[in-house]
Design a protein around this nucleic acid. Structure first.
Lengths: 151, 151
DNA sequence: CTCAAATCCGACGAAATCACTCGGGATTGA
DNA sequence: TCAATCCCGAGTGATTTCGTCGGATTTGAG
């Protein structure tokens, strides 16, 4: 899901790669990444060497945006949604004092999500890459390195 | 659900009453209230004039406790649960850096919930209680602050 | 004592959601 | 041309959520 973005830093990555690394079905990733694309968080390049790329630097992508793209407006309950567009008045709205609670919870969640970026979630070790080395390589090279295939 | 508690301040209330006021099916409320009882938030009295009562003053009941009683441990994702008992390690746990995100979200939610009590949700008009009537009031009062319990 | 009001309790069911699959079509580089 | 890759709508199966049902038990009032 979100981890998708963490691999990025340079070239486009294909779903096949990501699926292999994340151990998730490719067809499922398609759906997710399409939401991200519609939200303008990634761009795709089609054709033979295609794939997906972030449109901004990881530290410029708030997790709240990612989550909104993937799961819709932030709303612990339907009656306390983030997005005024999809506001749904619950039938009890008049006497429902609980709404206040959900609004506070929602704001707390949004605050936590706003305070984190993709960069906070990408494992520090992978960040610096040798530009000479092809990043798509090193799939599971057993003998080559030794110290890096942690996971 | 939670609104159940708001009617309380004096005598026990039957599910039939609450169901009528909240416009929810009685049979459904039964389930909910049983969870609250098991969690020690309400007590029941059976028989003819029975019903349910809060065990503590509304301002001594944190909403986090209510929610935990009704919906289990606070956990935006299974891998970031409140309660160490039910901790479930997701298979990806080793490489999953997203866990950090969920933990922060969870703490934000818990914080918001801890900061509110039932009293914050009960409509202000009903608050004033007759001090002569002593339901189960002030059971947990640590230091006798003579203001309320006129002996 | 009897009866009705109420809680207790386990099981069942329908609807929504989530995670995922399927099957094909469209684009592009080699 | 051919294979890699994205595009996209529809469908499926498990789980959760919300709610129902039927009956057993307890208790106060007449």
């Amino acid at each position: 899901m979100v981890q998708l973005g963490r691999h990025y830093g340079q070239g486009p990555a294909s779903l096949a790669e990501i699926a292999a690394e994340e151990d998730l079905p490719r067809a499922y990733l398609e759906q997710l990444v399409m939401s991200l694309r519609d939200a303008g968080l990634v761009v795709s390049t089609r054709g033979a060497h295609g794939g997906y790329e972030l449109t901004r630097r990881p530290d410029a992508i708030r997790m709240s945006d990612v989550l909104r793209a993937l799961e819709g407006p932030i709303a612990p309950m339907i009656c306390a949604t983030d997005d005024p567009e999809h506001a749904v008045l619950c039938d009890r709205s008049s006497r429902c004092t609980v709404n206040l609670l959900w609004v506070r919870v929602r704001d707390a969640i949004a605050g936590a999500l706003d305070g984190m970026t993709l960069a906070d979630l990408v494992p520090p070790r992978v960040i610096q890459l040798d530009p000479a080395v092809d990043p798509i390589a090193v799939p599971t090279a057993p003998t080559a390195n030794g110290a890096l295939t942690s996971s």
